[in-house]
Design a protein around this nucleic acid. Structure first.
Lengths: 192, 192, 192, 192
DNA sequence: CACTAAACGAGACGGTACGTCTCGTCTTGTG
DNA sequence: CACAAGACGAGACGTACCGTCTCGTTTAGTG
């Protein structure tokens, strides 16, 4: 016997996530307040508090939809170097998009708040880590015929993704083409 | 003709920087408020606002003293690989110390606030970048006898430091020994 | 042709009135919210709003049953002074009972809300006024053989009841025995 | 050594009391919210909460200035009956003025809230009671040459003021001329 | 004995005000 | 004139109820 009464409104959920996204891109993280989101989404504050605990949760929700796509690995389709370089470009481009800015903000906030850090990890980063390991593993396997062991794969992933995140998070600017290619080649060199 | 009246009190400056440092480590960035710093330092709020524009500036000030030391490159003293690995360990250790936590917090906040990002860049990151370029350049030069050109050196620095910052900023945990060594070796391989 | 479907549930009506009564006595008027009444009565909010417009209406409903009895005039049975004094004691006692507290709260709220004042007047006070006029009139008539004219009777009623309400509403405490007796005697003195 | 720093702003105090007064008269007690008072007075909410605990305290403060004057006893100047009647008219008129409406609202709210009742008692009613006892006592003394004992005086005061408050608080309308005169005469009759 | 049709529980929703918190500015008197 | 103390305007916080609304479910009658 399912429960009675009205169900959670999907249109509200979407409106809130969009409002949060928009505010973050337009005004930045600090100005993205629950009140602001509520006003922008045309929704009562209490309605937001009913479904989300904090703006971090909202942004995490918003991220879940968009980032999985933006950071997805394409099917291997060329040489290993081409595939890797293409993926790095994909990442660099992602951080220019709204969803990428959301991720960047959440990563920033995670440095300042243990709880947010844990939530981001559980809600997004670990999942993404799996996909990164799998994506890189698939390319290596296709190229060498062998599946790298877990430990090596993890290390290779850090080597591959480290520099690009470093440029974005520390210097606030996307990595340039040459760096991406160098990173891809170097990672491959170690992988073989 | 020098002006009359009391001059800026150095003891207040130190008390404020220490209070900020302490609060950040003990309570985190969000709880490190100007009000809190003032109370902890036994100083009036207005006095702080007279000399600093924001808590970011205070922390930047605090960082200036400590981080330059914590992230300094030692004189080359062994093989290139040894020197690089040692420096990476130094960095990893730095993020466990108070000064490292201040830097981490400022990097986090920089993702959320354009102004803070610029201030951090001007006040610390660019200076540190120079030192990283110089430090890595010196090691390569000692090993190969040749000075790498600027472009290559920048790329090598990103490859070297990227993974370690990636692990700290994205996963909130220090890079493990193996990753550090792999990074150092790989960077060297490309450098030669 | 009478309509189909379930009829208004009497048990709900009683449960709501009791819940309201109880809450008022236990928690006070402000804490007597529609939500609280609904929860206490085990009833949906909408069900309450279907049958009552406000908590004032609910309390008025609750009063209707009890207060008519609590403020009723007994049959004249002794000397006029005795009867009057007895009735005043009845009133003083009434304000200690739950129903009396409900009336007191409604009188209080009526000072703050024109609509509630009107509702209380229509729903209770005017009816009670009639009964007070009649009750006092009957005693005077039995004592003097004459029926006082309306205007005089109204004035006498105000003189009789004023002090006791004054003590309750202004000082929050029941009138003492001596005041009640003095009031009764004085009213009689003027009546003759 | 007196303390440093800014002092409480008297102009703010006055602005808040006036705003509260105005709102109460224009919109009623329920619509007289702290937020509304703050907005109307051009003052931050926090500033209100710094100096007053609730809107009741604000209104009490507002009352303190005005009501002492509005309910003051004039110097005896005619016959006792004239003086008493004049004072009753004064009271009746007072309830038509803003200050009177404030008192009426506070009396109303006192029925609903123990704390407010106590505050009203302490902050106003007891003081006023003293003045009423003294005022009536003075008139009686001038008329009879004797000072009534305390107990009698209290009873006489209740008899004198009861009916007029009764008409206002229970029926929401001022007592008519005849009732005031009858009350005054009757009280006097008992006093002698 | 279906077939209405309203009553009912549950509770989501847009609002308003609450009382609290912290911000950055401004004001006042002391050393 | 730097400083402590702290009042002040501003505005977001998270909570409590408001009164309205939408859902299934339950409960009479009517045909």
């Amino acid at each position: 016997m399912s429960r009675t009464g009205p169900r959670r409104s999907e249109s509200i959920r979407v409106a809130v996530l969009n409002a949060a996204d928009d505010l973050l891109v337009e005004q930045g993280f600090a100005a993205t307040t629950i009140e602001g989101i509520a006003a922008r989404a045309g929704v009562a504050k209490q309605t937001i508090y009913r479904w989300w605990k904090s703006k971090v949760e909202i942004l995490l929700d918003a991220l879940a939809d968009d980032a999985l796509e933006g950071l997805a690995w394409a099917e291997p389709s060329g040489t290993a170097a081409e595939d890797l370089t293409a993926h790095l470009h994909r990442i660099a481009g992602f951080f220019q998009e709204p969803a990428g800015q959301v991720l960047q903000a959440l990563l920033g906030h995670a440095q300042l708040d243990q709880g947010a850090a844990a939530a981001l990890r559980e809600g997004f980063l670990l999942r993404q880590r799996e996909r990164d390991l799998a994506g890189l593993g698939a390319i290596i396997e296709r190229h060498t015929g062998r599946t790298p062991d877990e430990e090596n794969l993890a290390r290779l992933t850090d080597l591959l993704l480290g520099p690009i995140y470093y440029r974005v998070l520390v210097f606030g600017e996307p990595a340039d083409k040459d760096l991406l290619e160098a990173t891809a080649h170097l990672t491959l060199k170690l992988a073989i």
